[in-house]
Structures are given as structure tokens and as C-alpha cells.
Amino acid sequence: MYKQPLDPHLMDDLIIDCQSCSGICCIALYFSKIDGFPQDKKAGVPCLHLCQDGLCAIHSELTKRRLTGCIQYDCLGAGQIVTQSLYPKTMWQDHPDQKEQLFSDFVKVFQLQQIRWYLLQCTCLNGMEDLLSDLTQLLMEIESAFINQECLKNCSLSNMHQRANIILKEVSRRFSHQWSERPKKPMFSKKLDHQQFIETDFTMSLLIGSDFKKSQLTRVNFLGADLRQVDFSGADLYECLFLTQGQINAAIGDQKTKLPPYLKRPDSWK
């Protein structure tokens, strides 16, 4: 499925790096305790555990405290782009007049990074030669939006979504059996272990708590699927399509789980 050799640094700009951020996600976003965050928190209000340096005071205790929302969250590198490129050396506390725009830009950059992640995955696949021109052009435009605040302002998110969706739909049709845009039926806690799935379409499916232990999943499409507490222990996901780090962080796995080459095994997986 993948082109060889794969570029080991292809996704470097989409890997979360809290040390290079200022804790924007812990301020800008709405949190709910029921979703595994420390508190119910309105957007724009700092988390009670956020330190002045932008780091988390209880980061080493997240697993022990079962704060799954914090463990699963992945900004795809949006935080460091905002902190390092768009608002360099700017801490939101020092510039209260800019914070609303900064938080709004963070959300926009995160959405652009989501699009970028999927498009970069497409460039890794064989048989996409006819789409490479459109892929390359769209990726260049997204990267150009991160040059400065003015460039980001002039970048149309809706236009990016529309053009990316055309590409992702076409790639999905080529790789997924009976691909469909129709909403998928919920599959909560389904027992699907020790099975073989080939070109199965799980796009936008609710698979919460399902069991895929020791299953073989080949060219399976997980675009936008909800994988919270899905058990992939011992499963082979190497050739799965459109998996993100956030989805994997939300799932359960172990040292025998085979992941796609662009994803990292979560520390919580034993």
C-alpha cells in the first residue's frame, strides 16, 4: 500500500510538542469532566493545572488520575505553530488584548493541520500519481498560511475543506470496499476480535468500546471514526487508512499491536 522508501520525517511538523507551546489548548478549548478532563471548563478559561510556563502541573499523573481526555488529546502540532511562528514569544497572559484572536487562530490552525495530516497520508500511498498535483498544491497553500497572521487570515478554511474532501473521497473509493458517504450505524462494544477485515469502510463510524483484539485489518478506512476504548491489542493496523494519532491515543493496544508507520505507540499501551 505504501510507497517505498517512506520518508521518516514526513509528519514531523504534525507531532505535538508541548515544550515548544504555551499551553494554548488548555486555555482556548472547552473541557468537560465527563470526557476525562480535570474539570468542566469554558473556552478561554485556563485549566486549573496550567502553569505560568505553559506546561501541565500534573502531566506525569494523567494516567494515574485517569484523565483520558488529556491523554488522548493531540493538536497535531497546531500549538507550536501558533506559539513559534504566528505569535512568536507571545504568552497570552502578557497580551490580553490579543488572546481572543490567538485562540481563534489556534482552532483554525488545528483544523488546517487535520487536513494536512490526511493529505500527507495520501502522498504515502501507491496509485495516487494522478492526484499528486492537486495534493501538492493544497499542501503548499496550507503551509503558506502559517507564515504569519495575515497569511492565516487570508486562508479560506471552507475552501481547503472542500478541495481536500474531493481528494479524500476519491482515495476512499479506491481503497475501501463499498465506500459510502452515508452515516454509519453505531457499533458500541461490538465483538470483532480474531477476524480479518479487508478494505472495510469504517468512515465516521462509532466504534466505541469495540473489540478488535488480534484482528488483521488491511486497507481499512478509519476516516473520522470514533475509536475511544476500542481494543486493538495484538491487532495489525499497519495498512489502515486515515488513522490519526488522536484516534490511536483514545484506543487500547499493546506492544504486539502493529501501527501504521507514521503513528507512535502511546506510552499508556503496555
Rank of each mutant, 00 (worst) to 15 (best):
P5D: 07
P8N: 13
P8D: 13
P8Q: 15
P8W: 06
P8A: 13
H9N: 14
L10Y: 13
L14S: 12
L14F: 10
L14C: 05
I16P: 05
D17G: 07
D17E: 08
Q19D: 13
S22N: 09
C25F: 01
C26V: 14
I27A: 12
A28Y: 01
K33C: 04
I34D: 14
D35C: 03
P38A: 15
P38W: 09
K42D: 11
C51P: 14
L55A: 05
A57R: 10
H59L: 11
L62H: 08
L62I: 06
L67W: 03
C70S: 04
Y73I: 08
L76C: 15
A78Q: 02
T83M: 01
S85Y: 01
K89S: 09
T90F: 02
W92V: 00
P96M: 15
Q98F: 07
Q101D: 06
L102M: 06
F106H: 00
Q114W: 06
L120I: 11
L120P: 07
Q121G: 04
C122V: 01
C122P: 01
T123R: 01
D130T: 03
L132C: 01
S133Y: 02
T136P: 00
M140D: 01
M140G: 00
E141T: 01
E143M: 03
F146L: 00
I147S: 03
L152M: 12
L152K: 03
K153I: 07
N154L: 15
C155G: 07
S158A: 08
N159K: 02
N159A: 05
M160T: 00
H161D: 08
I166E: 06
L168C: 08
S172T: 05
Q178Y: 09
Q178H: 11
W179G: 11
W179F: 14
E181T: 04
E181V: 02
K184C: 06
K185Y: 05
P186R: 05
S189A: 09
K190T: 11
Q195V: 12
F197D: 04
I198R: 09
E199P: 01
T200P: 08
F202P: 04
D211E: 07
D211V: 08
F212V: 15
K213N: 10
R219K: 12
D226K: 15
R228C: 12
Q229W: 10
D231M: 11
A235C: 10
A235L: 06
Y238E: 13
Y238N: 13
E239Q: 09
C240N: 06
F242R: 14
Q245G: 12
G246V: 11
I248D: 12
N249F: 10
A250Q: 13
I252S: 09
G253F: 11
P261C: 12
Y262K: 09
